[in-house]
Design a protein around this nucleic acid. Structure first.
Lengths: 64, 64
DNA sequence: TCGCTATGTGAAGTATACATTACATTTTGT
DNA sequence: ACAAAATGTAATGTATACTTCACATAGCGA
């Protein structure tokens, strides 16, 4: 599972910390997902898509 | 988190068992998700969307 | 250079997605 | 009505998403 979170963050010019607060998760969680350490829950993915005003598929890419 | 899995299943006229095999999860997992006992992982949601040829948002509805 | 802000990371614990087994109930076809 | 298929569900165990605390490194402005 790949993601373009860093790019979406850059578009809005916000920090991992800021995004974390918006998503109501920790900064470490955002960092871990961004770096591919694990995948987000579907709830978090939905929250992110809503925040960035796009679809889950615009942020996350499921391969195979 | 609501979902219209049962409807999508009905469209293809397949059983929970059949969908489970396609998704490579157990029948109980499909049943639990369909009945709202818990949410799918994002990977499973992606697999379902791919199988039903729709978007995750077409199957799952995130509220609140 | 100094200090601050952002990011990366490790360890240990909690919550939840999913498996397995097993059985009960409902639905469907004949 | 009867059997078989489909669905519901409980108990117990495992994997992983996420938290908290703590500290280390990177980058950037003054």
């Amino acid at each position: 599972m790949k993601n373009t979170l860093k790019v979406w963050r850059a578009k809005k010019d916000i920090t991992q910390e800021h995004l974390a607060r918006e998503m109501e998760v920790t900064r470490q969680t955002i960092n871990a997902i961004e770096r591919g350490k694990y995948d987000p829950s579907i709830k978090l993915a939905f929250k992110m898509a809503r925040f960035f005003e796009c679809s889950i598929e615009d942020i996350f890419l499921y391969e195979e």
